[in-house]
Design a protein around this nucleic acid. Sequence first.
DNA 1: ACCTAGGATTGGAACGATCCACAACATGGG
DNA 2: CCCATGTTGTGGATCGTTCCAATCCTAGGT
Lengths: 353, 353
Amino acid sequence: MNQQGRPEVGRSRHLPPPTLATVADAAGVSRQTVSNALNSPDLLRPETLERVQQVIDKLGYSPNRAARQLRTKSSHLIGLRFEPAQEGTSNALMDRFLHSLVDAASRTGHHLLLFAGDPEDPLDGYDDLLRSTAVDAFVVTDTYAGTPQSSFLQDRDAPFVAFGRPWDDPEADHAWIDVDGAHGARIATEHLLDQGHRRVAWLGWERASRIGQDRRAGWESAMSAAGLDTAGLGVRLTDNVDAARMATHRLLEDPSVTAVACASDTLAIGVLHALAERGLRPGAEIGVVGFDDSLAAQVTWPGLTSVRQPLEDVAFALIRILQSVLAHKPLATQGRMLQPTLVVRRSSRRDPL
Amino acid sequence: MNQQGRPEVGRSRHLPPPTLATVADAAGVSRQTVSNALNSPDLLRPETLERVQQVIDKLGYSPNRAARQLRTKSSHLIGLRFEPAQEGTSNALMDRFLHSLVDAASRTGHHLLLFAGDPEDPLDGYDDLLRSTAVDAFVVTDTYAGTPQSSFLQDRDAPFVAFGRPWDDPEADHAWIDVDGAHGARIATEHLLDQGHRRVAWLGWERASRIGQDRRAGWESAMSAAGLDTAGLGVRLTDNVDAARMATHRLLEDPSVTAVACASDTLAIGVLHALAERGLRPGAEIGVVGFDDSLAAQVTWPGLTSVRQPLEDVAFALIRILQSVLAHKPLATQGRMLQPTLVVRRSSRRDPL
DNA sequence: ACCTAGGATTGGAACGATCCACAACATGGG
DNA sequence: CCCATGTTGTGGATCGTTCCAATCCTAGGT
């Protein structure tokens, strides 16, 4: 139990935890000296530091966060409003992202505070935490057009970083990180063209989705760069397996269509369903590529090629920028775009290997 | 922006947030009276309460959490160590669970604090938060045999609730909630027997996993209740699609085997892969049931029947028990077992509908 | 009119850390 | 020997809230 060098505290059961004063008394120094030992050790004479350190370790002292927070006005907490994943879609991005974020935050001594909010009101929850000075900053994740969190927080001078660019808000001047969805769709499409496909269809979302438009633009640019026409090949759907399945059946009535790139794994899985129903082999006969590299894409048969967002990098970049924002440093760049990669699996490869 | 009744705070930019004293001055009462207005409104005369309330609303006052936490020694934070989902497995339980937990916690005025820990050391992280009194309590999720968190926290008198029963620790007397895995496997197996299958195989985990043993026991009990022999039908694997795929090929060399129940969706998806490779139709020819009702199970073709854990109920039960623990109320029951349900999809139905 | 009981309200102290101004101490130059 | 200089360490005040004990007020009983 104590192999990790944890202090013995068995006897301290039911005792109040040690405070600065306790440690100071035990070490024969003043409170301030102990505080310095923790916050600016270089102010102490080496031998004093050593002595104080030992007492700290022996008593298992850790500064009380509430007191520290009250004095320094910094909680070392980062707020994140946690929205539920929709059932029936394969979107398990959040899990990977969240873990990376927790990890990245912990490296700078921060913890993540999750809060819920009324789904009807995208601002619910932020306000309370802000007014009660419960968090140092926020990470905002849903920045699709029309969500007011960013401008709300900006108006309040609340420190925050967005995962997602400010799509069409010219007033926005907050820090952000985003993944280049157009580039993702482009490399997906190029990969299908490399496999010899000429008529590559696109399954995307409704017109209103900016993220969807961005990805679709990547498909279009790859097609036109190859001198190919996209007329009649782009389909707009809701993000739903069954909608994609039916749309695929319609698309495949045109026998020249031999590949489908999708705006999400959910849609791509719908395509695979349609292929199964028609007895067509994914990869060998019809090329399919999804988006997000969800767990479903990883385990689905025969393996779904997908565009993978560098969520680990996103998380670290978010935290790094947040540090600058909190330190009131001017930002080198207001936003930063990261590039996704393509994970190739069987659904897009013509060769059986 | 103000449709939700939020106070106007545009002018308060860059101003320090209002404090109790600010409000008290503005309302012409003492600090304590404002505090009472918030914490024990029944102590105030209705008209005083009304007046104070109005000032609070007008100034947009919210008590400073750090100060409150320092005084009351309660942070209203619940700690959860957040482990990464393994890539390549379909385990997206965490997402659903986490959201329910955030939701349940918020109803009692709590927030969730996520922290990371060294994967090598299951205790890492708990200690710091405890000593710095950063959280009121913990929710512990990995209680498979041999993990020391529970006894560690119990030794420290740290309030916590476990998701998972204390498998074989007779010393354990902490509160817990768990899902009856044996029952889940039993209803899964019974369902397959209902479909007319007689030789139902089991794909499970290695012997060391208590959860795995529990689920396997459910399969065995359903089989023996139906007077069926299980000899040679139980397989032990690591939780991995490919291992399950290969094991299935071996199992199906015995043509009498017509159904497979699995300890996880990951394994079940491996079974589906094997069926696809053999050209067998899931459901119509070979019945398959998974466990956990992951997103992958929901979207996979042709629909994977799976045992669904009532994670929403688990989350709410955890929070309710946590409240009792924090109030030092004696627990009515030390542990509570919730029953999973079976979500039937095509992979287990003989009729094509 | 006086006293008391009880509710409503108040000021001071405390939670445990950090900031601040100052005192104690050693060092070195005149 | 004394004072300037710089390093260490000290006690008091402070952050914003809640706890505590005491005070004010009003109404009711004698």
